[in-house]
Nucleic acid binder design. Structure first.
Length: 259
DNA sequence: ATGGCCGAGGTACTCGGA
């Protein structure tokens, strides 16, 4: 089974590339972030024609997540149970379902904006609720994984120049400790291989030629429990999808499982 | 080739992204 995660930065803007990519890769399950669409705008029909069922948690121009599956989509939960509000709103940042042999979450963790900003406090609270919500499945015998845009670079090796990020979000000890807590709950960082260069970055800013210069970050992560991690036969970042006109600023992370 | 931001809402420009 092939499972992947991709922050598409608007499913409407990305639809032609998304459909072509799904067909060319034969992906069975895709976790999508930043759909940036309302529930009504979601392209169910186009995806159904390619054989995908969809579970969607989306409410407009910001955020929004989805799960696509060709191998079944059962017991869908929209949202993060026990998750915090931001400015009084439960934002659409999580959706989970059982896809064939695996239980899967698609998550779009809050950005945080600036260290100690209210959004940063929200980000840490969101991680805390996520860890509590997944603890049971993480310790279970069924293959289980949380995939998505975690908005944290796990180590200094996961940013193109650590000096540039000093004092900024995505690299702080508190954010990295949140990832450590997830690992302590039983999830392992399934690190993909890069298709070029030495580091498996998944995000490159649109500005200042960041992609051609490989000024990237690894912030799109696959956190799987032991049965999931044991089944991984390959994992890679599809940087080809970051090329050219009409690309997202994130590349897909693809994981092949023997299940 | 991979090239100096992009997308949504709404129709000027602001917000969010990391």
């Amino acid at each position: 089974m092939r499972i992947a995660t991709w922050n598409v930065n608007s499913i409407t803007a990305r639809l032609p590339r998304l459909l072509a990519w799904l067909e060319s890769t034969g992906t069975d399950v895709l976790c999508i972030q930043e759909t940036k669409c309302s529930a009504e705008q979601f392209p169910y029909d186009e995806l159904r024609e390619l054989g995908y069922e969809a579970a969607v948690n989306a409410s407009g121009r910001w955020n929004g997540v989805a799960l696509l599956s060709k191998v079944g989509l059962e017991d869908v939960v929209a949202g993060l149970p026990g998750g915090p509000d931001y400015e009084g709103v439960q934002e659409p940042r999580a959706v989970s379902a059982t896809c064939g042999p695996a239980r899967v979450w698609s998550v779009y963790v809050p950005n945080g904006r600036e260290v100690d900003h209210a959004h940063y406090v929200y980000k840490l609270g969101w991680f805390e609720a996520l860890t509590a919500a997944v603890a049971g499945d993480a310790a279970g015998a069924r293959p289980f994984a949380v995939l998505g845009d975690f908005n944290v670079a796990p180590t200094d090796e996961d940013v193109w120049d650590p000096a540039v990020f000093v004092g900024q979000t995505h690299v702080t000890p508190a954010e990295r400790a949140a990832l450590t807590s997830l690992r302590e709950a039983g999830l392992a960082d399934v690190v993909p291989r890069p298709l070029k260069y030495d580091r498996p970055y998944t995000y490159w800013d649109y500005r200042q030629l960041a992609f051609p210069k490989n000024k990237g970050m690894r912030i799109d992560l696959v956190y799987g429990n032991a049965p999931f991690a044991k089944a991984v036969s390959d994992a890679y970042v599809d940087r080809e999808e970051r090329k050219g006109k009409g690309a997202s600023d994130h590349a897909p992370v693809v994981v092949d499982l023997d299940v």
